[in-house]
Design a protein around this nucleic acid. Structure first.
Lengths: 200, 200
DNA sequence: CATGCTTGTAACTGTTCAGTTAGATACAGT
DNA sequence: ACTGTATCTAACTGAACAGTTACAAGCATG
């Protein structure tokens, strides 16, 4: 039959299909958030059948969890902080979320769709705070602001421009995301974090 | 009929009902975001009939716009910045979003559901940036960071703790939103902004 | 080339949702 | 009191959605 011949089945490759679906889900969730994301659109984006989503990932919640875990892991890995150097951390994180807008948006959605954090994530944050405390004890950074607060400030500062309200980005004039503007902000971030953490 | 007598209609009061619906919508959108919010739940929260939502506000989009506008106006008003004092601004904004978690969450949802900013909002941000620039020219704050960037940093810092990822809030140990902890962070915010904007 | 497991597809189901219809009751003007 | 308009209500509708069913085709192993 011509109909049967017309629709050609995709070549069989479980791992590739699974990866495609996860990628498509990441984009979809990044764009619309959990509630706004559509299962059918994810399958369509991936060029795969919807049923496979359920085979490979369970349901929408588990799929979201899989996406969140992958993205948060990647961000945590891309911006480590072994020696409590908040400035280096800030720039590394800025560069990563600049190159991976999806990761930034997923993290943001996740914060607001109040889902329970994993133990691994909690541990990662704890380790970072401890690294900051260590740097404080070593006298490398200021001690009049608690480590957790200092870290929270720096964390948010890395996203200040990229996740700024559109009205603020626009108010500056010019393209807020042009390479030149972004580089200018990157330099500003470095300067800002340096003077924020410096001994008073 | 006993049935007819059982359901008592609410007393007629258009403005009060409209206000109740707007308040309920604010809570619902703050909690679930636009896509996650449910029209039926909003009506139920308000103790009003669903139909009235459509009479008073149009559709879900227009209702969300109404909520966003009210909340952003309130935040902008609560944290003015006539004289370019970023420190004072930061504390005022912190105090406001602390007392009004809904306003903070609405603003965040809005940023991520990429809706077009109103002219009024754009103008408000522009005015703030100009106030910062004026303070820079007057030599009151540092000039090696562009005004827009400096403002973006401070803006995000006011929410750093209250909108921190749950994993980060939890990593500190203790109740991250207890009055004592919040006051401690408030002091940290003041210190941080002061040394961030200070002349280098 | 049989058999059984994996990968894939289309069509379907039950539910939930935004938005509507049709009508009832209060209230103001005459 | 009579009439029109604003306020309010329950029940409905059609579409969209997450999740399922039933089946087809590839692919490895005997």
């Amino acid at each position: 039959m011509s109909e049967a011949a017309a629709r050609k089945p995709r070549p069989r490759n479980a791992t590739a299909t699974k990866a495609l679906l996860l990628k498509a889900a990441t984009e979809e969730f990044a764009e619309y958030g959990f509630a706004g994301a559509r299962i059918d659109r994810i399958a369509e984006r991936a060029g795969a059948n919807k049923r496979l989503l359920y085979v490979y990932f369970g349901d929408k919640n588990q799929l979201f969890d899989a996406v969140v875990q992958e993205q948060t892991d990647a961000v945590l890995k891309a911006a480590p902080m072994d020696d409590g150097d908040l400035c280096e951390f800030a720039i590394a994180r800025f560069d990563y979320v600049l190159a991976n807008p999806d990761a930034r948006r997923i993290a943001a959605w996740r914060t607001f769709e109040q889902t329970e954090p994993s133990d691994a994530e909690r541990a990662a944050f704890r380790a970072r705070i401890e690294a900051v405390e260590k740097a404080q004890r070593a006298g490398r950074i200021r001690t009049d602001i608690p480590a957790a607060d200092l870290f929270a400030f720096v964390l948010r500062m890395t996203e200040s421009w990229l996740s700024a309200p559109p009205a603020l980005q626009a108010a500056g004039g010019g393209d807020p995301l042009s390479p030149e503007r972004v580089q200018q902000h990157r330099a500003a971030l470095q300067t800002a974090v340096r003077s924020l953490v410096a001994q008073s």
